[in-house]
Design a protein around this nucleic acid. Structure first.
Lengths: 211, 211, 211, 211
DNA sequence: GTGTAATCGAGACGGTACGTCTCGTCTTCTG
DNA sequence: CAGAAGACGAGACGTACCGTCTCGATTACAC
């Protein structure tokens, strides 16, 4: 979804810094109202309730205005997600890798169960199954930054001698955090903070260096 | 999705045993054609392509005939999945728990990448995000039987002294197999048989009993 | 509606005289139940309510049974009408032509307003607009016999010197009785016995001022 | 059919006078195309052929566009009729009542046999039998204006001494013109201009033999 | 009696049209 | 001249009947 990337990319530099664009600048108030409305509707009634007409009506905006700035419903949702989700939780520098990942796992569960991001992510992943651009954007803008943070933590852990060297970071993340996504999407087991901690523990007792 | 359960339930006893129903009996050929068409369409173009009209057209069947036997598109897809997917892979009795789960994990990846079940599952999980009946049916008919098989293996492993007692089976499954679903749905990392094996290994080195 | 004519033709000779056919004979009870149900439904909810499925359900009969004996819904309705409608009202031999036609007109209004024949006729005329066979059957079986009766009365009236010779019988009927059909179908004026009498009077007397 | 009345009511003032509505205005070209298509189809194949889908297809318009402006198929047909039918034939001021009604009767027959209005009216009357709103609209928009014109003529005739006072105008119309509708709908006798004239003559003169 | 053949109920089936819904584009008028 | 209002083409939705077609179960005449 190259178009989407462009769209969301130029949202921050809204005229102040960027090269002067001709014509009327985007109305930031309306822009925000759309994201707000889309997010609200998805939370209330799931993906199905967040029709373009409903978003436009709730935001007090015309449909065309939405299509002007986003190529699809998924793009709106993704941007809404980024706006609502926490910034990358900041982890104490001196925490052990295990503690750090635990903090991230717990933060993720909190995000899933007590913020709008949970339902939003479910909708986005659903959309991603049939729309490759959504999938790509989801990976690029949501997943990768968070995975990179964990990779850094793990590398630090290896350097500090907390972990075995040769750890497959991607696999570790897929276990420690991926299993939480799995529960979010399939709903076969409850999503609790305790479960998040146990998930990390399970991985650790496998990858931790042993005397 | 109780209605769905009923439907799929009485499909096996196709008249031989069951109480004689009056009227023209269900046409098994058409019934099968619908499942075939629905599966094909989902594989070709994802969930979006498998509209009821398209399924009916491709199967050479009227829409009403589909609605006679399935309550929703998701129900058709699920039954199509069950038809296409392998029976539960049978595991040698004398295999260790680790070997057994490895076999299951590898079989799962194969199912995902080289059979129609992969795309079908992606479509179904997508639908499940907004349709609770689909989610329920998916858990009841697909997920639970497979998870139960792993639980049995793990229990046997504990009994044989291969595993620590007190293992959280649900969590182990979420890691060993759930991470594969996670990759299927997010597509951030490749799904290979080697990865499946490493996934099991990662878990084991955590739960394996140590001298 | 040749098929219809055949069907309705062999309803009277129900086995007594006709060549003995092998197999199970027509079930006269069901036959009657269908006519009853069809008529009832048309009266209750108009033509629209008398669907074949509704008739079959109400008569406790399968759809096929109806199609066995009648080619169309209109055919059922027409036969239902003939069954319910009065036999041709008998007119005293010694009545004047005017009195005789008056009696017929009043009988017609009564038929329209206080028997099921009114709604049934409305339904049939409606169907006749798009189905020529219905129109033909309606004319042959319903209209013509009644018009012939009036023609006879008028001829007798001419013979007796009550009427001018050279009277256009068809036109007279279209006025004296046709205006009542017109009111039945358009509903712009009430259908009363008094109106029926005045209708006949108008034909007889004209509106011209006379010296 | 109040909704219908509204629709057809605001069709004349097409934006010039009426309160300025926001948004894209009704597309008059498409509006007309729908009426044209509906009329054509009814003439070609009767009411049955003029399905909403067929009208939409022939007019090159989406179904929803039709539903935007008309509540039912009957409403489309009625408006199509009004568009195609002649304006009320204008009658010379100095004509006698008899001549005036004759002119109207002949014009009516011409309308029936040589314009699309005949088949359209047959379809509409058919629909009116089961849909009261159609019946009402048909009376209000088609029948009443034409009947009122005759009433005026008859009153003038009475004032001029051409007719007996105490003439039942409604009944006269039902005879002079209603009998023509009767022939249109039942088709038992031909509809000719000569018959129209004789119909008026019959009302004027009566059939009674006079001393 | 026992065939045997037509009839019946029930209802599945391919169709066709219904009226509704949402999408994404377009057109016009307003601020 | 950007934006709201909303008309529009497209096309899927799920429902309702149509008329046809299988079934298995009933009759009732003919042998």
């Amino acid at each position: 979804m190259s178009g989407m990337a462009e769209q969301t990319a130029d949202q921050a530099p809204d005229g102040t810094v960027a090269g002067k664009r001709r014509g009327r600048p985007r109305d930031q108030v309306r822009h925000t109202a759309v994201l707000q409305a889309a997010g609200d509707l998805m939370i209330e009634g799931g993906l199905a309730a967040a029709t373009m007409e409903a978003i436009a009506a709730r935001a007090g905006v015309s449909k065309q205005t939405i299509y002007n700035w986003w190529p699809s419903r998924g793009a709106v949702a993704l941007e809404g997600l980024m706006v609502r989700a926490d910034p990358l939780a900041d982890i104490p520098e001196d925490a052990t890798a295990r503690e750090a990942v635990r903090l991230l796992a717990v933060a993720l569960v909190r995000l899933f169960v007590s913020t709008p991001a949970g339902p939003l992510l479910r909708s986005l992943v659903a959309d991603a199954q049939s729309q490759p651009e959504i999938a790509q954007a989801l990976r690029d803008q949501w997943l990768t930054p968070r995975r990179d943070a964990v990779v850094a933590i793990l590398e630090r852990g290896v350097a500090r001698g907390e972990l075995r060297s040769g750890v497959d970071a991607a696999l570790v993340i897929d276990h420690a955090l991926g299993s939480l996504y799995y529960r979010l999407l399939l709903g076969h087991e409850p999503l609790t903070e305790a479960a998040a901690r146990r998930s990390v523990d399970l991985v650790w007792e496998g990858i931790e260096r042993r005397g």
